[in-house]
Design a protein around this nucleic acid. Structure first.
Length: 278
DNA sequence: ACCCAGGAAATTC
DNA sequence: GAATTTCATGGG
């Protein structure tokens, strides 16, 4: 895979097994918006870029070759061979094979751990459209303006200096105090996010669950999308329906070391086929 | 008016 | 301890 400078950003070729809509707008990150041009604009790691894919050429506007190597290559998980993984997990179950074939361009993003934690705390008993609005207001209110009208995700330290009432304008409701608790425990070191990247899975889960407002599902999503623990298998309402109907008798462990990737294929497939569950 | 939303805490049985 | 209710907010 080669990355070279263009007039306004970088150009990367070849990029396989990537579909930007399937990856950036499928409920793992809540900060990307699709422009009329078709490109996706978003902020991660304090940088704002616009991505677009033409065949197997990925263009990232407002990025340098250095940023690509240090941030975006990692963010999009481009070092992992998803084609090979898809082939492997397709042998587990015919419906999984079908789901993987349906959206082969899904990748698991490597988001910032604290951002993943907060956005999935916000996600509970909520819908994706509203989650995006709350996250947007959170960044505009308490993040740093890194470009004209573009804001980074606020730090745990910044949020730890606030009270739940300060978050009222976000309209996140009962989740406000959960966010403050998360910020305080991360900022103080009571919850160690770095440890969650390498600790045994159940231990990492318990570490996150020290936070009020973090249960098994939010912990699993944080581990999958913020710490790249691809063995995680978050079960939300869609996944529960899918497991009951499409994979009766199976559990997370049956999906193996790439369970998280399988989960994303199944989640997306299920959301695109609601009629399966009527 | 009623139900649901990538759930979890608080309360009740 | 397991099952049920409540928690803000917005959209359909």
């Amino acid at each position: 895979m080669n990355c070279e400078k263009t007039e306004t950003g970088v150009k990367v070729f070849p990029v396989k097994d990537l579909d930007l809509a399937q990856t950036l707008d499928c409920g793992q990150s809540f900060r990307w918006v699709q422009l009329e041009s078709g490109g996706f604009k978003g902020v991660a790691y304090g940088k704002c870029v616009i991505m677009r894919l033409e065949g197997e050429t990925l263009y990232i506007e407002n990025a340098t070759v250095e940023d690509f190597e240090n941030i975006w290559k990692n963010y999009l998980d481009l070092s992992l061979d998803y084609g090979k993984i898809r082939e492997k997990i397709s042998k587990i179950h015919p419906v999984l094979k079908e789901a993987a074939k349906y959206a082969p361009g899904i990748r698991i993003l490597r988001q910032e751990p604290y951002e993943a934690l907060c956005t999935f705390v916000i996600s509970q008993n909520n819908n994706i459209k509203r989650i995006k609005g709350i996250v947007q207001r959170l960044c505009e209110s308490f993040g740093e303006e890194i470009a004209d009208g573009e804001f980074s995700f606020p730090t745990a330290e910044k949020m730890a200096s606030l009270t739940a009432d300060d978050l009222a304008p976000l309209r996140a409701g009962f989740r406000n105090r959960y966010l403050i608790d998360a910020a305080q425990k991360v900022a103080s070191g009571e919850v160690n996010l770095d440890k969650c990247k390498t600790a045994p899975y159940e231990e990492a889960r318990q570490e996150l669950m020290k936070i009020t407002g973090v249960g098994v599902k939010v912990a699993d999503c944080t581990l999958l999308f913020g710490m790249h623990r691809i063995e995680a298998f978050p079960i939300d309402v869609w996944m529960k329906r899918a497991m009951d109907k499409l994979f009766p008798g199976m559990c997370a462990e049956d999906f193996g070391e790439y369970a998280g990737i399988a989960q994303q294929y199944i989640f997306h497939y299920s959301r695109m086929h609601p009629e399966l569950f009527e």
